[in-house]
Design a protein around this nucleic acid. Structure first.
Length: 275
DNA sequence: ATCACGACCTGGAGGC
DNA sequence: TGCCTCCAGGTCGTGA
């Protein structure tokens, strides 16, 4: 669920907490991604800090404060970062609660615990292990077709794996990889080093347009995703291939095919997506 | 160095 | 109704 458009939707709805002071910090103590426990002492040291900005790179949210530290949040597959009333009961899978005063709390919940929480020094952001290797963000940096083709030619993996590689482009996940390749009329199983210049241009434009259009619809909600205000996204109704196996392609009416590629569901139109 | 695969964890859906 | 199995949007470590 939370790929770039969903994380950006959360970021935008989180603008409401900018200027708020973190009056209290509570964490569940449970391990999240890769059995790593979020650093409790550094989380709690945010007490008293004021939130100054909420940024994003790919699928990572960066909550800046008026101190040298920022909070890093990755939503994994089922993570939510939502503003709640302080009197609302804590959900079962709540892992972080920032008390913001005015009866508001910013809560991170994550049933599957594939998410990530960390506190890092902003001055050394580039060195953070999760951020250091990220490629350009399609919304904030754009995608340079020349750089895209150079990266594609260095690899032998499929185009789908290429588009999913966060070191190449930050923020594309399984849903939008299928969607962008459909839009670019390229077969997901095509080897990335066979990408032509014209195809690379089409792919760069397709990724950007796929993401922008999903963002306009508030992101894709298949089961868990909601924005920081609790509102689900509407983009599931606008998907062209993802989760549409056996339904007609909106361009050519051929039935959409589902394959398992690299252990992930992959959808494409056998007619209008060239090999 | 690059790639494919499995593991991480829980809940929901569907079959019996 | 209840138990079982399978499946899921991300990322990383392992072994080939």
């Amino acid at each position: 669920m939370p790929e770039l458009p969903e994380v950006e939707t959360v970021r935008r709805t989180l603008q409401l907490v900018i200027g708020a002071r973190i009056l209290s910090v509570w964490d569940s103590g449970k391990s999240l991604r890769m059995r790593c426990r979020p650093p409790r002492a550094r989380l709690r040291a945010l007490t008293g800090a004021r939130i100054t900005a909420v940024r994003r790179h790919g699928k990572y949210l960066l909550v800046d404060t008026d101190r040298p530290q920022s909070l890093l949040v990755h939503l994994g597959m089922t993570g939510r970062l939502c503003i709640h009333g302080a009197s609302e009961p804590l959900g079962k899978h709540t892992h972080l609660v920032l008390g913001l005063g005015g009866e508001r709390e910013l809560r991170f919940t994550d049933a599957r615990r594939f998410g990530q929480l960390d506190v890092f020094e902003r001055a050394r952001e580039r060195e953070h292990p999760s951020l250091a290797a990220l490629g350009p963000d399609p919304l904030t940096h754009g995608i340079d077709p020349a750089a895209l083709i150079a990266a594609a030619r260095r690899r032998r993996a499929s185009l789908k794996a290429f588009v999913l590689a966060q070191t190449v482009i930050a923020g594309v996940g399984n849903i939008y990889a299928s969607e962008a390749l459909w839009r670019a009329r390229l077969r997901p199983t095509m080897r990335s080093h066979r990408l032509t210049v014209a195809n690379a241009r089409r792919l760069a434009a397709a990724i950007r347009r796929t993401i922008e259009s999903a963002l306009r619809n508030g992101g894709t909600t298949l089961s868990d995703f909601v924005a920081a205000d609790g509102v689900p996204g509407q983009n599931a109704d606008h998907l062209c291939v993802y989760d549409r196996a056996g339904l007609p392609c909106s361009r050519c009416k051929t039935l959409i095919k589902r394959i398992v590629h690299h252990g992930r569901a992959t959808f494409y139109c056998p007619t209008c997506q060239a090999r």
